[in-house]
Design a protein around this nucleic acid. Structure first.
Lengths: 343, 343
DNA sequence: TACGTTTCGTTAATCCATTAACGTTAATCC
DNA sequence: GGATTAACGTTAATGGATTAACGAAACGTA
C-alpha cells in the first residue's frame, strides 16, 4: 500500500541502506548509476519518506513548536504566525501550533505535548509586546521569544520585538515636519513596553524640536480602545488652546479621535492631523480619511523568529551574539490623516 | 539524559513491554501492583513518551494537518484556527499548520509535507465561504473542509459552513419586525455563496412580509469593502424615496454606509437603521453606534471541523451521514444600529 | 495426582529510516 | 607481483514504542 524505502530499494535492486544513501545525496558513497536508478524507482513509486521514522533515527524533526497566548482574539496573530510559518516552510520546516489562552497550567501541558512530539525548538509568542517570565518547561531548550522579551536588562534568551521608540519617533517627526507645534498624545494608563516607549518618544521628539512639554496635552485613558481614544480627545480638547495634531497610542484610539472630531465638526486632516500606531488590518486603511500610522512588523517578527530558531538548531548563526534581542523597524505608513496645521 | 520507556521499566524492574502495558491502561494484562510501580517510576523519572516512536509503531500521530489559503490577511483566520486547535487539544491532538497563499503548487507540496509527517487527517480551510476543488493529494485521505464545500449539489467530503441564508434571514426579520418596509441591500457584484445566499434571504424575507421587491433598492458594488458600501449607499439613495434601513453584505460595507450617513447628516439608527454581516472583530463593535450584525461562527466551524475529523479518524460518528455538509447557525448580534423607522 | 485454566509477565517482531562498520572487487603504486 | 587504497554496496545496529505469541506459576477440580 504505502511505499517505504524498502520498496524503492527492491525496485532499484539494491539494499535499503544504499537507497537511503542515494536519496540523501551521499554521492561519494554510491555510484552515479545507482543514484539514478534509485531516484527513478522513488519517483515511479511516488515514494514519500516517513518522517516519523527519520525523526526517530536522526533525533531531528524539522518542526517548531509555536506557543502563543491568544491567537483567537488579536488581529495581528495571523501575521505573526504567517511570518513564522512561511519562513519555516521555505526551509522545509513546519509549525506545530498551540494556543494556551494565557493559562499557565495549560502552557506547561502544551510544552510537554510539543516536547513529546520532539519539536526541535520553540517559538513563544505574545500577542502584545511585553516582558514575560519564560515557563519552566522551556528552560534549557531552544527558544525564541516573539513580541516579548524575558528580562528588562540583559537578554537570557533570543527575542524579537518591535522598535517602539523609533517608530513613535518617526510618527512624531512627521507631524513636526509638517509644522505642528501643539501636538497631543492620547494614550492608556496601562503600563507596558508600548505605552512607555511611545510616550518617551513623544517627549523626546518634542524636546528635539525645542517644544516645551505640556502635560495637559497628554491624556491617559483606561485602555487602548476606540472609546478610550474618544475620552482622551475630550480631555485634551478641554484645554484653552486646542492641539493641531494628535499622536495616538493605537489605531483603535485614533478611531475614537475620529469620532470626536466628527462630532465637533473638525475636519481631518485639515483641522486636526491624526497619527495612529499598529497599522491594524482592516482598520487603519478603512477609516476615512485613511489613517497615517506606524506599522508593527508582525510578519517580519514571525519570520525572524523562525529563521533565528532554525539557525540555532542547526548551530549556525554562531557569529551573532547569543542570546540577542532583535529590534525590528516599525515603518511609518503615510496615508491621508496628516496635513500641515491651519494658518 | 532523555528518559525512555526502557529506563522506566528498569527502575520498576519489569520488561519494557510490561511498562508499556502498564502505562497504557491495559489493566487486565498487568497486576495492580506492577501498574503502581511502573507509574511511580514514570513519574519519578518525569518520563515523556516519544510520540515519534509511538506514531511509527501505531501508525497514528494524533495530529491534524491544517491547510489554509491565507491566514495572514484575514481577520477571521485566528478564530477558525483557534476553534480547531482548541478542540483538537482537548482530545490530545495537535495542529500542524501550513498556509499556502492560494498557490496550487505550494498546496501540493504542503500536502506532501504533512503526509510525510503522517498526519492522521486534514482540515482544508478557506478564508471565505466558497466552493473549492479539492486538491488531488487529499483524495482518499481523511479530510474535512472548513468554510468551503466541494460540489454545489451532493457532498463528496465532509464540510462545515455558515448558514448564510438563515443568518441573513434573521437580520432581515429584525428590520421588518421593527417596522421597516423600505429596506435597501448593499452588496457586491462578485458571485459567491455569501452574496447569493444573503441576497436570496433578502428577497425571501421581503416576500414573507408581503413587500414587493424593488430592484432599485439593491446596489451591486465592485467588492465588499468600505468604499463599496459607500458607493452602494449613494446608488440606493439616488432613489426618489429613501430607504429607512439598509442590510449590508459585510460589516465593512456597513462602515461605508456609516460614512455616507454621516456626510448626509443622517443619524444612525434614528434616520437610518443599518445591519451588517460577519461581526468582524475590532470593527462591528468599534463602530459608533455599534453595529448590529450577523456573526459568522468561525470559532465554532473550526471546532466542528476538528471534532468531525477526529471522529472520522477514530471511526466514530458512524451513525451520522457520511459525507455530510454541516451548516452552522449565524447568530444575530444586536447592538445599536437598528431602531424603528421615523414615523 | 493429573490436567485444564487463569493470571501475569517476557520475548521477539514490527514500524521505517539512518549510518557506522565491514567486505568485496578493482585500480594504483613501487 | 604483492601490497595498498579507492570505490561501492551490504549487513546489522539503532532510535523508542506497541503488541502478538508464548510460557511459567498458581489455582481449581475430578
Amino acid at each position: 500500500m504505502r511505499k517505504t524505502l524498502k520498496d524503492v530499494a527492491a525496485l532499484a535492486d539494491v539494499s535499503s541502506a544504499t537507497a537511503s544513501l542515494a536519496l540523501n545525496g551521499h554521492a561519494s558513497r554510491v555510484s552515479a548509476d545507482v543514484i539514478e536508478r534509485v531516484q527513478q524507482a522513488a519517483k515511479s513509486l511516488n515514494y514519500q519518506p516517513n518522517l516519523l521514522a527519520r525523526g526517530l533515527r536522526t533525533q531531528e524533526t524539522k518542526t517548531i513548536g509555536f506557543i502563543s497566548d491568544v491567537v483567537a482574539t488579536t488581529p495581528f496573530a495571523g501575521q505573526m504566525i504567517a511570518g513564522a510559518q512561511e519562513h519555516a516552510w521555505s526551509k522545509g520546516w513546519l509549525l506545530l501550533l498551540i494556543d494556551t489562552n494565557n493559562n499557565a497550567s495549560l502552557e506547561a501541558a502544551a510544552i510537554d505535548a510539543l516536547h513529546q512530539r520532539r519539536v526541535d525548538g520553540f517559538i513563544y509568542a505574545s500577542m502584545f509586546h511585553r516582558i514575560v517570565r519564560i515557563p519552566q518547561g522551556l528552560i534549557g531548550r531552544q527558544v525564541v521569544l516573539l513580541d516579548c522579551t524575558d528580562e528588562p536588562k540583559e537578554p537570557g534568551i533570543d527575542s524579537v520585538i518591535p522598535h517602539e521608540y523609533e517608530g513613535a519617533m518617526s510618527a512624531m517627526r512627521l507631524l513636526l515636519s509638517q509644522g505642528h507645534r501643539r501636538i497631543g498624545h492620547v494614550t492608556s494608563k496601562e503600563i507596558g513596553v508600548a505605552t512607555v516607549e511611545r510616550l518617551r518618544a513623544y517627549k523626546d521628539a518634542l524636546a528635539e524640536a525645542k517644544i516645551p512639554f505640556d502635560a495637559s496635552l497628554v491624556a491617559y485613558s483606561r485602555s487602548g480602545d476606540a472609546p478610550d481614544g474618544y475620552d482622551g480627545a475630550v480631555q485634551i480638547f478641554a484645554n484653552k488652546k486646542a492641539p493641531s495634531a494628535i499622536f495616538c497610542y493605537t489605531d483603535r484610539m485614533a478611531m475614537g479621535v475620529y469620532e470626536f472630531a466628527q462630532e465637533k465638526g473638525l475636519s481631518i486632516p485639515l483641522d486636526l492631523s491624526v497619527v495612529g500606531f499598529d497599522d491594524q488590518p482592516f482598520l487603519a486603511n478603512a477609516l476615512r480619511p485613511a489613517l497615517t500610522t506606524v506599522r508593527l512588523p508582525h510578519y517580519e517578527m514571525g519570520s525572524w523568529a523562525s529563521e533565528r530558531l532554525i539557525n540555532l538548531v542547526n548551530d549556525e548563526d554562531s557569529d551573532s551574539p547569543n542570546p540577542m534581542r532583535k529590534y525590528l523597524h516599525c515603518p511609518l505608513v503615510e496615508r491621508e490623516s496628516v496635513a500641515p496645521p491651519r494658518s
